[in-house]
């Protein structure tokens, strides 16, 4: 078994995997897409919305804004001990968007969002959310939480995850895995987390198998 990092940056990681089965390598690829958690807005309380954009659309747009995620700080709501359907400071973050166009047309962007914890912020301040005509106002409370890509695409930390066979080698069990981050997590963290999740799964499977033989 061989792991060689070919390229590494916050946005992208390229890893050469040798001596692993395709099934294993592809599982990492798939988990990077669908199971590595990241933050995204999930519940939106619309306090005021006089823009032309409907509440449900505004909420959808807010959900799609990638948020910087600190996996050490938060847990998935289903793993949280608060047992509160509304969540607790350990499993959700409050984001507030309060924007008003006074005399001229205003474009509300992700930079206008204020975060409760200061770390869970949009990855870029210039993502357009809605355009307001003079005197229109948007005031919302958005609750972000961790989630997984298989639940909704907004929780996919990796924009792209590719498993390819290097052209020069003909050997089986020789792959290149490339993960490109959306920006919420560094690419390397997505990779590591994906491997961890896969291992957890395998371990819990082993547990189960063992319990059968008892």
């Amino acid at each position: 078994m061989k792991i060689e990092v070919l390229e590494k940056s916050d946005e992208k990681i390229r890893v050469h995997l040798g001596g692993v089965s395709r099934a294993y390598a592809n599982a990492i690829r798939r988990i990077a897409l669908s199971e590595v958690p990241c933050m995204a807005v999930d519940d939106v309380v619309i306090l005021e919305n006089s823009s032309v954009m409907y509440d449900e659309l505004l909420a959808h747009r807010l959900g799609l804004i990638p948020l910087k995620t600190d996996l050490s700080q938060y847990v998935l709501p289903e793993n949280c001990d608060c047992n509160n359907p509304l969540g607790c400071p350990k499993c959700r973050v409050l984001l507030v968007l309060d924007a008003e166009a006074k005399d001229s047309v205003k474009e509300v962007v992700s930079g206008d969002i204020r975060s409760e914890d200061g770390t869970t912020v949009p990855i870029s301040p210039s993502i357009p959310i809605v355009k307001l005509a003079p005197s229109q106002k948007v005031k919302v409370e958005a609750y972000a939480r961790l989630g997984r890509g298989k639940e909704h695409a907004k929780w996919r930390p990796a924009a792209i995850s590719i498993l390819t066979t290097p052209t020069e080698t003909d050997t089986e069990d020789d792959y290149i895995l490339e993960i490109e981050s959306v920006g919420s997590l560094p690419a390397s963290e997505i990779f590591v987390k994906a491997v961890e999740i896969l291992n957890e799964k395998l371990e819990s499977f082993t547990e189960k198998a063992r319990s059968l033989s008892k």
Partner: peptide, 12 residues
């Protein structure tokens, strides 16, 4: 189809 099940190109 879920994204992870969809076919992908070399460029992803």
């Amino acid at each position: 189809v879920n994204q992870e099940d969809m076919p992908y190109t070399e460029a992803g």
